[in-house]
């Protein structure tokens, strides 16, 4: 579905990602793990076309850029943004239309469907800035699902959530994956990654491990991350 070949990313001479090669297959639940600053977000952004890889290539197999959903790493930028949940979620559809288009009935139906699926239909009129952390993540996931047909890329979707909300998030993702959605998720939560993901990509600028999650536990890479304070 997605193939990365020798992708490197650098910021004005500082290299963040080096020579990363891996594939995402349809139906995968790929968890990307690694310490802070190991280049996970940069790799994801280069796949999404937000930053240009300095070398290497990302190719998509029958998948346009408007068919990928994205849940960005949490920032404080939108903390205070005046927007209703409905406005946020439907903006996931904006990229599918021409530059001057309005939303259609099918866009609205898609929004309803995803709000239902994530259990936040009752929040649609609420303001995004009044939501709790977990509700915000769901709203942003709903937006990603409005954009995605078959693939979602999630940058630390459970970071900052309490264990209850995190496990609800995992349940939602598991359900999506079962329904055929391919998931690429960056995570700090090793237990969650091993339990739900079918593949692991462990990064430290380069790829330390890429393969099935049940093979990962025995490797040096796994021990390295866990010894260094990963969960």
């Amino acid at each position: 579905m997605v193939s990365c070949r020798n992708v490197s990313v650098s910021y004005e001479g500082f290299s963040a990602v080096e020579d990363v090669t891996f594939d995402v297959l349809a139906g995968d639940y790929l968890c990307v793990v690694g310490e802070n600053g190991s280049g996970k977000s940069s790799l994801m952004k280069s796949i999404l076309g937000l930053i240009k890889p300095t070398s290497g290539r990302v190719t998509f197999d029958g998948l346009g850029p408007a068919e990928i959903g994205y849940l960005p790493q949490r920032t404080n930028v939108q903390q205070d943004f005046p927007a209703s949940v409905h406005e946020v979620v439907i903006s996931g559809r904006a990229g599918r239309h021409g530059p001057f288009a309005f939303y259609s009935r099918s866009d609205r139906a898609r929004v309803d469907e995803n709000l239902e699926r994530l259990g936040i239909a009752d929040l649609r009129r609420k303001s995004y800035r009044d939501l709790s952390g977990g509700q915000r993540q769901r709203a942003l996931l709903a937006r990603a699902l409005c954009a995605a047909e078959r693939l979602v890329m999630l940058d630390e979707p459970v970071a900052g959530l309490d264990p209850m909300m995190a496990s609800e998030m995992y349940d939602i993702l598991e359900g999506l994956n079962r329904d055929g959605m391919t998931i690429v998720m960056i995570s700090h939560d090793m237990k969650g990654a091993l339990r739900y993901g079918n593949r692991i990509l462990h990064m430290r600028k380069k790829v330390l491990f890429f393969g099935a999650s049940d093979e990962y536990v025995g490797t040096d890479a796994y021990r390295l991350l866990n010894a260094e304070g990963g969960e």
Binding site: K45, Y70, S91
Partner: peptide
Amino acid sequence: FDENFARATGM
């Protein structure tokens, strides 16, 4: 609202 998301989804 979110420039990165907008760009990632083809805007």
